[in-house]
């Protein structure tokens, strides 16, 4: 797979962002982060209230990329077989045939993932990590690209199973969409039906270009001063008294690949500290455990970024 030049990569990604922006108004930063996650090959956790556009975002991405799309509504009676698939006896053949579950798709929207039981959650999350599933002794590869957009409602709701930290770590980023701005909401209210708009979307990026973009991420140059900066930040999380524990090396790798994708999105062949700062809150926010519930991860991360000097 040949890598694209930074400028081409930026233009391609920008086209996609503009197209999504037609449907999901006023959420450029969230769309950019989502695309960054997709290009960096990670999965996305959308944490927000119902009705702010999570599904719209997932659908728009699937349609604009021409990818297959499945939606998995997580409930407390969801079983692993409902995710992965099930073998059914075929009377004609006299044998069992495997019926693929919703996980066999390119873009999977796992809605309200924290409503599923830990058993169903782990089946999904393992598939996310391995990009393959094992059924009855056979290993079936998942399609490529495989991009999961999981949503969850804020935790203080009844009947949910919060994802444990080890599972949260599987998500490259956690993004909140939030309420739209006043003008954006007005446009939404005046505009046409979202479903109608979505159905009209046509692919703007081919699968090949997406794979080229993913391949380009690895070519983005990472300099020594930039790595110093990343390491200082990570080291600081490990000594902050407000945190139960600091960031893992895996978190460092995640920040690096997200920052590379972000640099690409902005047409740079190298990462600058600003790239790191742009993706840092989304990448590490869900990986930090606060000692005091009264603080928010966002404020701690913001304070951290204000504290560590840029080399």
């Amino acid at each position: 797979m040949t890598a694209l030049s930074p400028a081409t990569a930026r233009d391609q990604m920008q086209r996609l962002i503009d197209a999504v922006g037609q449907v999901l108004v006023g959420k450029t930063h969230a769309i950019e982060l989502a695309l960054t996650g997709l290009v960096a090959g990670g999965h996305l956790l959308l944490e927000d209230l119902p009705g702010v556009g999570k599904t719209t975002l997932a659908l728009a991405l699937a349609r604009l990329l021409g990818l297959s799309y499945q939606r998995l509504q997580c409930t407390s009676d969801l079983l692993p077989a409902d995710v992965i698939g099930v073998s059914v006896y075929d009377r004609r053949d006299g044998s069992f045939r495997f019926h693929q579950g919703p996980v066999f798709t390119q873009i999977l929207l796992a809605d309200e993932i924290n409503r599923a039981t830990p058993r169903a959650q782990s089946a999904l999350l393992e598939a996310m990590e391995e990009r393959q599933v094992s059924v009855e002794g056979r290993t079936l590869a998942l399609p490529s690209p495989f991009f999961v957009l999981a949503t969850q409602n804020p935790l203080e709701q009844v009947g949910t199973y919060p994802l444990p930290e080890s599972q949260l770590d599987r998500f490259l980023m956690r993004v909140s969409l939030g309420y739209p701005a006043r003008a954006a909401e007005r446009e939404l209210l005046r505009g046409r039906d979202r479903r109608e708009l979505l159905s009209e979307l046509t692919p703007v990026l081919s699968l090949e270009v997406l794979q080229q973009l993913q391949a380009s991420v690895a070519t983005v140059h990472v300099s020594e001063p930039w790595l110093d900066y990343l390491q200082h930040l990570i080291a600081r999380t490990r000594e902050l008294p407000t945190l139960v524990h600091g960031l893992s090396p895996r978190a460092g790798l995640a920040v690096q690949s997200a920052a590379r994708a972000w640099a690409l999105l902005h047409g740079r062949g190298h990462v600058v500290p600003e790239d790191l700062k742009a993706v840092f809150p989304a990448v590490v926010g869900h990986r930090l455990r606060l000692r005091n519930d009264a603080d928010s991860a966002a404020s701690v991360v913001a304070a951290l970024l204000r504290e560590v000097p840029v080399p």
Partner: peptide, 9 residues
């Protein structure tokens, strides 16, 4: 320039 500010920012 604040110490935490990157050049582009």
């Amino acid at each position: 320039r604040a110490p935490h500010e990157g050049p582009l920012e």
